[in-house]
Simulated scan of single mutants.
Amino acid sequence: MKIKPLIIGDLVAKIPIIQGGMGVGVSLSNLAGSVAKHGAIGVISAAHPGYLEEDFEKNTLEANLRGLYKHIKRAKEISSKGIIGVNIMVAINNYAEHVKAAIAAGADLIISGAGLPLKLPEITKGSAIKIAPIVSSRKAVKVILNYWKKHSNRTADAVIIEGPNAGGHLGFNTNNIEKEINNFDNNILDIIDEIKLFEKEFNTKIPVIVAGGVFNHEDVLKYLNLGANGVQVATKFVATEECDAHPNFKEAYIKCKKDDIKLTVSPVGMPGRAIKNKFLEKLEKERIKISKCYNCLIPCNPSSTPYCITSALINAVKGDLDNGLIFCGSNAYKINKISTVKEVIDELMGE
Rank of each mutant, 00 (worst) to 15 (best):
E54L: 12
K255R: 14
K14W: 08
M89G: 06
I15A: 05
R138W: 12
V214C: 09
H98I: 08
K130C: 08
L221K: 15
I7K: 14
L31G: 01
Q232W: 05
T305C: 01
I188W: 03
L11F: 02
H71N: 15
I181W: 01
I290D: 02
N165G: 01
G171R: 01
I290G: 02
I188T: 03
I309P: 01
P164E: 10
K289H: 13
P306Y: 00
G167R: 03
S266L: 11
D193W: 00
D157Y: 03
V265P: 01
A75E: 07
A13F: 00
A128M: 13
A132E: 12
V317N: 12
P121S: 11
I209M: 10
V265W: 05
K257E: 15
I103N: 11
I134P: 09
E242A: 08
S80V: 08
I41Q: 04
R273M: 10
I134S: 11
G171A: 05
V26H: 05
V214T: 09
E351Y: 15
I84L: 08
E54A: 14
T155I: 06
A46D: 00
L263D: 06
G227T: 10
N175T: 13
T155A: 08
L118H: 09
F184E: 10
I88E: 06
V24T: 14
K236L: 14
N165L: 15
R273C: 09
L31R: 02
I129A: 12
Y95K: 01
S127L: 13
E53S: 11
G212K: 06
S136N: 15
P121M: 10
I134C: 11
F327Y: 15
A104T: 13
L31Q: 01
N295D: 14
K81M: 14
S79D: 06
G23N: 05
L118R: 11
I92H: 00
N336P: 03
K342A: 13
Y294D: 02
I275F: 11
V43H: 00
K81I: 03
I195V: 13
V99M: 06
I290F: 02
A96N: 14
D185K: 10
N301F: 00
H98W: 04
T124A: 15
L61T: 11
V210G: 09
P5K: 07
A332W: 04
H48Y: 13
I7N: 09
V220M: 15
I209R: 09
S112K: 07
K292D: 05
D185N: 11
G67D: 02
S311H: 12
I192D: 00
G212L: 04
D259P: 04
S112L: 04
